[in-house]
Design a protein around this nucleic acid. Structure first.
Lengths: 346, 346
DNA sequence: TGTTTTGTTGTAATCGATTACAAAATGGTA
DNA sequence: TACCATTTTGTAATCGATTACAACAAAACA
């Protein structure tokens, strides 16, 4: 019977394996990295020696020599946001499957400065960067890219305009249009929108899609019916206050996130405006809680795990030189029709 | 005026800095790691050279030489769970402040095998491990610890019993007792509990605390009133079905997590049992959504960020040899009294 | 002034894997 | 058998920082 890795005092290295297998370190290394380059016999001998010694590669040494780290750094605006953690989850699994690991940095809701980003990149802790933060200005980002021309970067979910990086995102335009259509079919003709922060691409893209679709259908919206805020519950509540003070208001509200919708509905209800009887409210994201919220929220489902997965694929292909720098992956979304929307009041 | 780092084709190394400053590489390294060991003059010269060359340390080389990585690996059962991401957030910030970075591994809700854990640890990618997963069996964990006696490990939030590692957790017993007391004061005398998975420490600790406190007060609970499940919304819904089929049931329910409570309330409502008029329901965790849920959820607030922060401190101290291996940090919790609980129906 | 102590700096070995290049073994063919 | 092509293996340099040790200089002391 084969012995379990014997308790050595020192961690075994390639030389130990090589000695035991009666080959050179080069051969051991080859067995581990390019098995086909080695004859079957020696390969088996080496693998046996690896098992017997309990050898585990020293990453630092390999990283130094190969000038790579087999890890990817994700830049997240706010880790405590469940939306991001879902994407990270998909990301992490896809990376792990390829023997890459995931480093996470929380930029703390304040967009990173170019200098901070340079430092993160130059730290040489990662082979690539996945940016989940769309609040970075185009100029700042261009600077970072210019300073680090060889650093593979992929955007996931959010992105920065006019930057030459692969990007993975949901079909935001289609999603918003679907919501408008859904409300339109329910007889609504006057539409309002609660945006995220104006500094964020998603906010503006969704707002524009909203305005476009409403006008295509011939519906009505007005500037004061488009409220700005953040993607948070609190922003939704604040919007509710503003709305309840309006003398003349839309019957249908589309929110830029589910959290906004929660706050909005909560606030409207408190103000005596019943959802969906007096006003319909739709969200965006389909986070887990939408289902048990009262009323269950009509929203757009984003394939979060898939987005993480695709982002992982893209960055790996970029690292391997197979990905087109300008590739934009737009993943389809789906309307989830629940009970926060209904027929327009007459 | 000082030039910005000039665009070299090759990343500058210590030798480049040394040459420019007219000193040896040893001196450069000393300036960067032990500034006091170097005279003021040379120190300034070196720092100037660092700035001029735009030198950034190569971590792989340093890691190899010092046999450390300045990064910490967090083992998370499920990244998409908002509860964990909040802790990670606190963790990441505290680590970053000390120039450590955070690696994340999602064990995918299936507890890791000892072998998988060994591999993660031995990969030498991290100087320490923060375990957020309490579903690992005591035997498995003991094995891992025996195999890696020198690896600093800290538990956060969840933990494994009878293991000699620092642990950071909320006051689960106190929290549950507070909930029971709160319901008791509202006139409830018959109590039920919806647990998490039995394999999880938190589940059993909370369940035991529940049983203990109810009996201390002289209240009533029975085995069939203690339902098992997972920490999920779905489990709460399933519990609601079971409950609505009971002929004789408690008036007060304490759930092991907010998510369970959401599912439970949603299910009870659907079954025609009104919360809080017909039954009171309390959660545990105080996740963000509790506030806008309808009815707003009475729950126990856990200091999630603080837990992450404390876990970071503990692991750093452990790495530096200052932390007591058996230290248990129990952070205080708070009752958040909202509207899902009320007077017992008569 | 000579001797010791203290403080500062440099030389060169070292961490552990990968890989260019060369050498050896193998197989195929005339 | 001799020759060439191909496959397999080994030798030793290399990645870039840290640090033990030694050397030197400056300060303190007798």
């Amino acid at each position: 019977m084969v012995q379990k890795a014997k308790p050595t005092n020192r961690a075994p290295k390639v030389v130990d394996v090589a000695r035991l297998a009666g080959v050179s370190t080069a051969t051991v290394s080859r067995v581990l990295n390019d098995p086909e380059k080695v004859s079957q016999n020696t390969r088996e001998a080496v693998l046996a020696a690896v098992k017997e010694t309990g050898y585990r590669i020293n990453r630092a040494a390999r990283n130094l020599r190969t000038n790579s780290t087999r890890s990817i750094l994700a830049l997240v605006p706010n880790l405590s946001n469940p939306f991001f953690s879902n994407i990270l989850s998909g990301l992490e699994r896809a990376l792990n499957a390829e023997d890459y690991s995931l480093l996470v940095t929380d930029s703390g809701d304040a967009p990173l400065t170019p200098d901070q980003m340079d430092r993160l990149i130059a730290a040489g802790q990662a082979d690539g960067l996945i940016v989940l933060d769309g609040s970075i200005s185009q100029a700042d980002f261009a600077e970072v890219q210019a300073n680090n021309p060889s650093c593979p970067i992929v955007f996931a979910c959010e992105w920065v305009n006019d930057v030459n990086c692969p990007s993975v995102r949901a079909d935001n335009v289609g999603g918003v249009a679907t919501l408008v259509d859904h409300l339109w079919e329910n007889g609504h003709r006057r539409f309002g929108h609660v945006m995220g922060p104006t500094s964020n691409v998603l906010s503006t893209v969704r707002r524009d899609a909203f305005v476009t679709r409403v006008s295509e259908l011939g519906g009505e919206t007005r500037n004061p019916w488009i409220l700005q805020g953040t993607f948070s519950i609190d922003a939704g509540r604040a919007a509710a206050e503003a709305i309840s003070a309006m003398s003349d208001r839309p019957t249908a509200w589309i929110c830029a996130s589910d959290q906004i919708a929660f706050g909005l509905i909560s606030g409207l209800t408190r103000a005596g405006i019943n959802v969906p009887d007096d006003a319909s409210v739709a969200g965006f994201d389909n986070i887990e809680m939408t289902e048990v919220f009262n009323p269950p929220l009509t929203t757009i489902h984003q394939p979060r795990n898939k987005m993480g997965h695709q982002a992982a694929q893209s960055i790996l292909e970029l690292i391997r030189g197979q990905e087109n720098r300008a590739q934009v992956h737009i993943l389809p979304v789906q309307l989830v029709n629940r009970e926060s929307t209904g027929p327009a009041p007459r």
